[in-house]
């Protein structure tokens, strides 16, 4: 693994990691370990009586109620 990635991982604070992030991307666009084509979404469907349906890195069913 190149030193720029090791340096990023060895950041002592998240702010420092964020400051080094451009260098990681410069390495990525130079080495091209993969080609990220783009991001895609998924679709979930709820009944209209479902309240407070949420998604954040997975479904969130606490705080969800049925108001039918």
């Amino acid at each position: 693994m190149p030193s720029v990635v090791d340096d990023f991982r060895a950041s002592a604070t998240l702010e420092e990691a964020q400051d080094k992030y451009d260098e990681v991307l410069e390495w990525y666009w130079e080495y091209i370990p993969v080609v990220r084509i783009g991001d895609f979404k998924r679709v979930a469907t709820t009944q209209e009586y479902i309240d407070n349906f949420r998604y954040q890195d997975g479904f969130v069913f606490w705080g969800v109620s049925k108001n039918d």
Binding site: P33, D39, R42, V43, T45, Y55
Partner: peptide
Amino acid sequence: LESDPNLTNHTYPGAYLTIHF
């Protein structure tokens, strides 16, 4: 499903498509 008045669609982040070599 979106055209059904009893239903609601939600989009959310899925993943990213990648070319692996």
